[in-house]
Amino acid sequence: MKIIQGIIIFIFAIFILAVSLVGEDEKNNEANPLATKTNTQNGEKPEGLIFNKGSELTEPVGYPHKIHFDIMEDCKLCHRISPEIETPSCDICHEDPYFNVPKTTVQPQKMTEYFIFNKDSKIFDPVTFPHLIHFEIIGDCKTCHHHHDPEHVTPACITCHDATLDYENIEKPGLKGAFHRKCMGCHKEYDIGPVVCVDCHKKIE
């Protein structure tokens, strides 16, 4: 009998623990509306958001996010993102999200919107790289193109970074290394964007 009692208590304890953990998760979500990432493909959109919580002048603003989406049916009207990728939170680009001030003044119209990489791989599908969005988020070409000069056309990566490895010259990373280190380095550092292989490289079915 004691054993059964013990088991019941144990199960109950686990139940309580689980419930409390779930509750905590929800609280966290409420606390950081701007950090919420939504995935448009899966349709997991936050029901509502609360803005302007830090203000001393006015009350926080409740924003019915889902209703807006239901009416407009297009994320791009507000979020300038591609439907393929996760929506970053606004303050990644906009220092003050409520007044919509872009970080840079470069005109993005001149830039290529997408690049397709890795077209020859036998294991992975080609990778679509949303160039423009990255610019809009980062706002500084030099972060990636370390030989960028506004006066000239930015040199292609392969100009310096060879596609095949050369063991006589180990100082410079090869093309593959340069790309992966740049992408993943940034994604890791800012804790945003894919870092796991298959998040960018979809396997060929």
Partner: peptide, 12 residues
């Protein structure tokens, strides 16, 4: 060394 995507392995 050849396949390492981040070139964490340097051969030389």
């Amino acid at each position: 060394a050849e396949i390492c995507p981040v070139e964490a392995i340097t051969f030389g």
